[in-house]
Simulated scan of single mutants.
Amino acid sequence: MWAVSCLAAAGCTTIAGIDKPYHPADGGTGGGGAGGGAVEDPCTPEEVRCRANRPQRCDEAGRWQDEAECTTEAPVCRGGACVNPPSCAALPATCGLREEESCCATTAVPGGSFHRGDDGTFPATVSDFLLDRFEVTVGRFRTFVDEYPASWPAEGAAEHPRTPGSGWDVAWDEHLPAAQAELMASLVCEELPTWTDEAGANEVLPLNCVSWYLAFAFCAWDGGRLPTEAEWHYAAVGGDEQRLYPWTTSESSATLDPSYAVYGCGMDGTCELADLPRVGSRSPRGDSRWGQADMAGSVWDWLLDSYVEEYPAECDDCAVILSDTDRTIRGGGWRSAAEVLLPSYREPRGRGNHLAGVGLRCARDP
Results as ranks from 00 to 15, higher is better:
R282F: 01
A274S: 12
G269I: 05
L244Q: 14
E272P: 00
A274H: 04
C265P: 05
G264F: 09
M267A: 12
W247E: 11
M267E: 14
Y260I: 02
M267H: 15
R282P: 03
G266W: 00
W247H: 08
A274G: 11
R282E: 03
C265D: 14
S250D: 15
R278N: 07
Y263Q: 04
R282V: 05
S259Y: 09
A274M: 13
L256G: 12
Y260E: 14
T249V: 15
Y260N: 01
A261C: 03
R282N: 05
D275H: 11
D257A: 03
P277T: 01
P277H: 09
S252P: 01
T248I: 05
P246D: 09
T248M: 07
S281P: 03
S250P: 04
A261M: 02
Y260H: 09
Y260L: 06
Y245G: 09
C271D: 15
L273W: 10
V262K: 08
C265T: 09
E251P: 07
E251D: 12
A274L: 10
Y263W: 13
E272F: 03
S250R: 07
E272R: 11
P258H: 06
P246Y: 04
A261L: 02
W247N: 10
E251Y: 07
L273Q: 02
P277W: 04
A261D: 05
A254W: 06
L276R: 02
D268M: 10
S281Y: 02
Y263R: 01
L256R: 07
Y263F: 15
T255F: 14
V262W: 06
P258K: 06
T270W: 02
L244V: 08
W247G: 04
L244P: 07
E241P: 02
D268C: 01
A274R: 14
A274N: 08
G264V: 01
Q242S: 12
C265R: 08
S281F: 04
Y263G: 08
D268L: 10
D275Y: 04
S259N: 09
G280C: 05
T248P: 03
G280Q: 04
W247F: 11
P246V: 08
E241A: 13
Y263A: 01
S250E: 14
S252G: 12
T255V: 14
E241M: 07
S252H: 10
V262N: 14
D275A: 06
Y263H: 11
G264Q: 13
A274Q: 09
G266C: 06
V262C: 09
P246W: 09
T255L: 11
S281I: 00
S252D: 15
R243P: 02
T255A: 05
E241Q: 11
V279K: 03
D257T: 12
C271M: 14
S259H: 13
S253A: 15
G280A: 07
C265S: 15
E251R: 14
T255K: 13
P246L: 07
T255S: 14
R282L: 01
L244H: 11
Q242E: 15
E241C: 08
L244W: 11
D275P: 00
S253D: 15
T248R: 05
T248A: 13
C265Q: 12
R278S: 15
A261P: 04
Y263I: 01
G266T: 13
P258C: 06
S252F: 12
E241V: 08
R243M: 12
Y245I: 06
E241H: 13
Y245P: 12
L244I: 13
